[in-house]
Amino acid sequence: MILIVSTCRYSLSEEEFVRPIVEIVQDCGFDYEVRRYSERIEPSEYSKIIICGTALRDFDYLIYIHNFTQLIDYDGTVLGICAGYQILAKLFSNELEEVKKIGVYDVKVVKDNPLIDKDTRSYFLHKFSLKKTNELLEPLAMQNDEICVFKVKSKEFYGVSFHPEVLNKEIIVNFLRL
């Protein structure tokens, strides 16, 4: 069972940021549940967790970041997309920087990984991201000086600052097949 977490304050945003992820999970034939960021999740009930993105002006999920702290002890796999990337970065004690990026930009793979195997172009929609990480994370792909894909070293947790559901569905499919 896959858990899909919405970080959207408004349900109209879920049409934009959650439904496309749900459809990819459905197309891959997996069972799933959708929960909201304001609910405390129990990760052990799920084999994989995807934390979706939200609107550019939406930061409500950061008020509820305590609902995600149990992820630190989770042994499954996690994909954090945009807002999910920010949540994972913060859970593992990284400071986000103001990096506003709206549109399609080049992405360069800097370390072999199971999600993204070659340089690509991706759709970005965020105001905060990482330019450097602490020792708990390792960069997997860069957009200029922004770390746009990272892995939590001790876990199968991945953060993606762009929206792979738009131009890079294969990243989500590769994650589901891990």
């Binding site: 049409e15 439904r19 496309p20 550019l56 002006r57 709206i102 399609v104 759709y123």
Partner: peptide, 27 residues
């Protein structure tokens, strides 16, 4: 259209407005 969406998102951001695209990526 990422071309269209990018421009709408940038203008909304400039004006400090939320941007909602409820049909985004729909079949």
């Amino acid at each position: 259209s990422t071309y269209q969406a990018t421009r709408f998102q940038r203008i909304c951001d400039d004006l400090e407005l939320w941007c909602f695209n409820p049909l985004w990526l729909r079949d």
